[in-house]
Design a protein around this nucleic acid. Structure first.
Length: 299
DNA sequence: CGATTCCCCTGATAGC
DNA sequence: TGCTATCAGGGGAATC
């Protein structure tokens, strides 16, 4: 599932290929079988028509990440926000529409996870930016770049973990959630922006902290360990091109490698990989999400 | 009002 | 083999 390192990987890719290209056309079938609760989503047909009209003819300026959101800035003072949620990812390549489905002959796009295309942008160089989203959870909206600070989708987000986040700020943020389980707090987007289930499990494992430990029961020295591990692990996730244990692919349709570096996530019942630990990895639902942690060394 | 549950969605997997 | 039940989960809404 796309978290900070995956969204970073996608955004980097977009900046590699989209510069100066114009959006010629927009296609989507989200609204055909999806009932959108929110009127502000391209899953709503009326909003999609508006979306298409507004961005057709505009050029790409740059892409940016904020938390788990992709922001694509266009000419005309417009920005597209895409939240990939669980199974969404953007793909760049030569696509064609056949028998009601988008296809591509490019080898990397033969991966089944790249075939759930529900949104495409036709580009001025003849290629497409396509959005594959198997479970159709994603959020796609358009907003005026200048009104960014008013946007309810971005405004509540906490600080970015990798952008000069000092230990004091980190500690202050964690301490805003007294009495709560640390796993839930790490994943709370208003505390820190961009950490989800995989990376929170990995950070806690590396820091020897039990996911259910209450925030106020974490010593300063443990917090410091967490702060260091958080930066290290998120950075290594980026270096490995993200995590493709599930559906995530970069814009070229390729897998990342972080899934091969998991110490704990989805290693239920397996032996703990910490040297000399001898513990077993357990799974438990915490805050509605499955947490994975060592039976022995995480306390 | 804070905490928990539901819901969106569909492919993979387990059980019969 | 084929069917059904369960699970995966970000985040917003509904409910306890």
């Amino acid at each position: 599932m796309p978290e900070l390192p995956e969204v970073t990987t996608t955004v980097r890719g977009l900046n590699e290929v989209l510069q100066k290209l114009t959006i010629k056309n927009v296609w989507s079938d989200y609204f055909l079988r999806t009932t959108s609760k929110s009127k502000i989503s391209i899953k709503n047909k009326k909003y999609f028509d508006h979306f298409k009209k507004e961005i057709s003819g505009e050029k790409f300026l740059s892409a940016e990440r904020r938390g788990k959101n992709i922001l694509i800035h266009l000419t005309g003072g417009k920005t597209i926000l895409i939240h990939m949620k669980m199974t969404g990812h953007l793909l760049y390549g030569k696509y064609y529409f056949k028998n009601g489905k988008w296809k591509s002959d490019e080898e990397l796009l033969s991966d089944p996870f790249n075939q759930f295309i529900h949104l495409t942008f036709s580009l001025s160089n003849g290629k497409h930016l396509a959005f594959s989203d198997m479970r159709k959870f994603a959020k796609v909206i358009l907003f005026e770049t200048a009104k960014r600070s008013d946007l309810v989708d971005l405004e509540p987000l906490g600080p970015e973990p990798l952008q000069d986040l000092s230990f004091d700020t980190f500690k202050k943020q964690i301490n805003t959630k007294k009495g709560k389980k640390i796993k839930t707090v790490l994943m709370d987007q208003t505390v820190l922006a961009g950490i989800g289930n995989i990376y929170s499990d990995e950070i806690l494992w590396a820091s020897s902290i039990h996911p259910e430990r209450k925030t106020e029961k974490i010593s300063d020295s443990d917090l410091k360990t967490m702060w260091i591990n958080m930066k290290k692990i998120l950075e290594s996730g980026i270096e490995m091109g993200g995590d493709s244990m599930s559906d995530y692919r970069n814009i070229y349709g390729q897998k990342g490698n972080f899934q091969n570096a998991h110490k704990v996530y989805r290693r239920t019942k397996q032996k703990c990989l910490k040297k000399g630990c001898g513990g077993t990895i357990l799974r438990k639902v915490i805050g509605g999400r499955s947490a994975h942690f060592c039976s022995k060394h995480q306390k």
